[in-house]
Design a protein around this nucleic acid. Structure first.
Length: 434
RNA sequence: GUCCGGAUGGUGUAGUGGCCCAUCAUGAAAGCCUGUCGAGCUUUCGACCCGGGUUCGAAUCCCGGUCCGGGCGCCA
């Protein structure tokens, strides 16, 4: 039993005279006395239901015009082409049922006439998402995922899931959330990194995973969350340059897919989406440092991680997506492969949007002894990595991969101010509910 | 963690010592209106984050707390 024949957005004047059943929320009511207009909203748009007192009779007219905003209603009626109606059609109802009445007052205004603060919106997120521009962002996020998945499948990549509950801090540095796992202590995984590498040793050759990652860092910015969705790939028998091409194609492909398939949502958001041009610029870490020193007088030592100021300067100067490559080995993780002829530089890269980092990846170390040395060099204990290191002892193909933040991709694509706008129920330093 | 800013009806706001039993918009309730499309008009309802202090008088100034926003830090 499906309680509708059409979505509002699917109706057009060509259905003139046809009976339809629409279900959705009572968006607003404009009552002119002898005639009233009930605007019904569902996820594809708005439909005007015209209530004419003479046609409906006093009783039905009276009860229909008293429907509270945001109540869930079902309308059965006939489509009528009508020049005076928005979008050229209206519904003349024969039956109106309130399936579930909404209480008043509402926690926020779903018609978006009145502004609403982020905190208020997140507290009443279920209703916030009823706002068309909020919903549009999440529908676009779904389209981005669809685009990425189909791109990976077309490239012959196998989709996998790796554990989110893990035994130990796998990479050092970042803080993990401890959880209780029967009689043991366990953690929420910060990244699928070690597992996707192990799958290279397993001969899976090309894998991708889209799933949650958890960071217990106490950061407090518009672009960080403690739970995020990461898009990860790992390919065998390729190098860093190859996976950078995969990355830029995946990102540009997502833009293209959204531009072609999410016209309604982009219109709701008032966006004219420009598909980024390929290939993205490649800038080495050293070049970035020089650029920042020359033009902005930013003084950073070679080997320092780029601070926010430098990152922002580079973004403004370059003005489009770009890769930062050839990082100092000292500031990239142990699994990043150093260049053979100059080991102080490594084959790690970041994909940058002018506003922020979107992804990072690398050619990986695949030699067991070298990996052990790199782990030691970072001040970590190889014993803690035994389950991981074992995969390097019996034939590990050379491999490379990256991890891309889904919410950051959507946030930058849609020019959202805060990453919380790109996550349904964000988890940050303070927010655990809803 | 730190620096800056903020907290006023359900929502978004105005108000920096008396003009405020608090402004405007939206909303809610009632009424008028047959083509609205942010409909219009009339009436009504609904708020100064918590605690302490200064003062004849505090939404407004001071102290403490809580919460929120933004920047930085942190972010393999």
């Amino acid at each position: 039993m499906i309680l509708r024949t059409h979505y509002s957005g699917d109706i057009n004047a060509e259905l003139d005279g046809k009976e339809v059943i629409l279900t959705g929320f009572a968006h607003e009511m404009r009552d002119l006395g002898g005639i009233a207009f009930l605007v019904l909203r569902d996820r594809k748009g708005l439909a005007q239901v015209t209530l004419v007192k003479k046609l409906l009779g006093k009783e039905m007219f009276k009860s229909a015009r008293s429907i509270s905003r945001e109540s869930v209603v079902m309308v059965r009626g006939n489509v009528k082409a009508e020049a005076k109606a928005p979008r050229g059609y209206e519904i003349l109802p024969t039956e109106i049922q309130v399936l579930n009445a909404a209480q008043v007052p509402l926690p926020l205004d779903p018609t978006e006439k009145v502004e609403c603060e982020l905190d208020t919106r997140l507290d009443a997120r279920f209703m916030d998402i009823r706002r068309p521009s909020v919903l549009a962002a999440f529908e676009i996020e779904s389209a981005v995922l669809q685009s990425l998945r189909s791109y990976f499948y077309q490239k012959g990549v196998t989709e996998v899931f790796t554990p989110k509950i893990v035994a130990a801090a796998t990479e050092g540095g970042t803080d993990l959330f401890p959880i209780s796992y029967f009689e043991k202590e366990a953690f929420l995984n910060q990244s699928p990194q070690l597992y996707k590498q192990m799958l290279m040793s397993a001969g899976m050759d090309r894998v991708f995973e889209i799933g949650p990652i958890f960071r217990a860092e106490e950061h407090d910015t518009r672009r960080h969350l403690n739970e995020a969705i990461s898009i990860d790939i790992e390919f065998s028998f390729v190098d860093d340059k190859d996976v950078m091409e995969i990355l830029e194609e995946a990102v540009a492909g997502a833009y293209r897919y959204v531009a072609e398939n999410c016209r309604y949502q982009l219109e709701v958001l008032g966006l004219d989406l420009q598909v980024p041009k390929l290939p993205f610029k490649r800038i080495t870490y050293s070049e970035a440092l020089e650029l920042a020193a020359e033009k902005a007088g930013v003084k950073m030592q070679w080997g320092d991680d780029l601070d926010t100021e430098t990152e922002r300067f580079l973004g403004e100067t370059i003005g489009e997506h770009y890769f930062l490559t050839d990082w100092p080995s000292s500031i990239k993780p142990y699994y990043t492969l150093p260049y053979e002829d100059r080991p102080e530089v490594c084959r790690g890269f970041d994909l940058m949007h002018p506003r922020m980092e979107l992804a990072s990846g690398a050619q990986r170390v695949h030699d067991y002894s070298q990996l052990v040395e790199r782990i030691k060099g970072k001040g970590l204990d190889p014993d803690g990595f035994e389950f991981y290191l074992n995969a390097f002892r019996y034939g590990m193909p050379p491999h490379a991969g990256w991890g891309l933040g889904l919410s950051r991709l959507v946030m930058t694509m849609l020019k959202l101010e805060n990453i919380r706008d790109a996550v349904l129920f964000p988890r940050d330093r303070r927010r655990l509910v809803p």
